[in-house]
Simulated assay, not measured.
Amino acid sequence: MKNILITGCSTGIGLETALVLKHNGFKVYASAREDKDVIKLKNLGFNAFKIDVRNKEQIASALSTILENDKRLDAVFNNAGFGQPGAVEDLSTEVLKEQFETNIFGLHEVTIQVMKIFRKQGYGKIIQHSSVLGIISLKFRGAYNASKYAIEGLTDTLRQEVIGSNISVSVINTGPVTSSFRENSLKNFNANIDIENSYFSKLYKKELKKRLESTKDNTPFNLPASSVANVVFKIMNTKKPKPRYYVTKATYILGFCKRIFSTSIMDKILNKM
């Protein structure tokens, strides 16, 4: 039975991926950073760990337990992450650092610890969860855009460095998918952005905050979390996974547009979104 470690399994894509893989016969090591979510995962029948990806010791402890149990690790899905909305000029350096601590530095820490295992055993699959916002940028998402672009750079480089080995590195560029991402983004927006004193105060209140607070998701091409879970399932069943997987039509369309349009034209298109 092949096994996999998945980070960020409290809700949404991480949880759905864990459920799909477990249902299809994989041994899933699911992790979350809150104790209550770890308990929930255990009640669902998972081998569950408390992992805040910003904590090296928690990552190392989980990997050690996996090796004690199975003597190997077949794959890792670096899914943990969050969004910090707000215009670039409204992002303090401290808030930007917080975005990177989880989305890029945490992901990197899991990756380098897993790579030691994969190099020793001679095989393994690394699946990095990026975004359509690792391909194009949208306004008021600067922190998140930057963290996903960083994932792209590290992943493209690592993929070259494992050529000739039995280690694969894949990135998933996910577009609009139903999850609790927007709800969590609203919390970060309210906590870390000085809305009242921003140049964009009126626009924040009229558009951004209203969209984040909405219980309806009218985003074009939106798909359920299972759309990502199915891609991870495909990767797990593929001998030679592709380096990149697009999820949702929005990712395909915007990825294509970036290849054919000039930067100035793309800016005008994206600024309307």
Score class of each variant (00 low, 15 high):
88 V>G: 03
63 L>M: 15
71 K>N: 14
104 I>L: 15
53 V>C: 06
86 G>A: 09
113 Q>K: 15
67 L>H: 06
103 N>D: 14
91 L>G: 02
104 I>T: 12
115 M>C: 06
56 K>L: 14
75 A>M: 04
92 S>D: 10
98 E>I: 11
52 D>K: 07
64 S>K: 15
100 F>I: 11
89 E>V: 13
82 F>V: 04
78 N>D: 01
65 T>S: 12
106 G>I: 02
64 S>L: 12
116 K>M: 08
77 F>P: 00
84 Q>L: 15
89 E>R: 09
82 F>W: 13
59 I>A: 03
48 A>H: 01
74 D>I: 01
82 F>G: 09
94 E>S: 12
109 E>D: 14
63 L>A: 12
120 K>G: 00
76 V>Y: 02
121 Q>C: 10
71 K>H: 13
89 E>P: 07
89 E>Y: 08
82 F>D: 06
73 L>K: 03
124 G>R: 05
101 E>K: 10
111 T>H: 00
113 Q>H: 12
77 F>A: 00
99 Q>L: 04
106 G>L: 03
48 A>P: 02
105 F>M: 10
71 K>E: 12
122 G>E: 07
58 Q>K: 11
51 I>N: 00
97 K>T: 10
69 N>H: 13
116 K>S: 11
69 N>E: 14
57 E>N: 14
108 H>R: 04
91 L>D: 04
109 E>L: 14
61 S>W: 01
101 E>R: 09
85 P>N: 11
79 N>K: 05
109 E>I: 11
57 E>C: 05
83 G>R: 02
101 E>P: 03
109 E>K: 11
91 L>H: 12
117 I>F: 07
106 G>H: 02
114 V>R: 03
105 F>L: 14
78 N>V: 00
67 L>K: 13
86 G>H: 07
64 S>D: 13
99 Q>H: 06
94 E>G: 03
96 L>C: 05
81 G>R: 01
83 G>V: 15
51 I>H: 01
52 D>V: 10
74 D>Y: 02
73 L>W: 03
112 I>V: 15
76 V>L: 07
99 Q>K: 06
52 D>E: 09
103 N>V: 06
114 V>K: 02
122 G>K: 09
71 K>S: 14
85 P>H: 11
54 R>G: 05
63 L>D: 08
80 A>E: 02
112 I>P: 01
119 R>T: 08
88 V>C: 12
83 G>H: 02
69 N>F: 12
77 F>R: 01
58 Q>G: 08
86 G>L: 10
61 S>D: 12
76 V>A: 09
87 A>Y: 15
94 E>Y: 07
117 I>A: 07
93 T>F: 14
98 E>D: 15
69 N>I: 13
87 A>H: 11
76 V>C: 09
74 D>G: 04
112 I>H: 10
57 E>P: 01
93 T>V: 14
104 I>K: 01
113 Q>T: 05
83 G>T: 12
87 A>L: 06
50 K>E: 08
70 D>T: 02
121 Q>L: 08
124 G>T: 11
85 P>Q: 11
88 V>Q: 07
87 A>W: 13
49 F>M: 01
66 I>L: 04
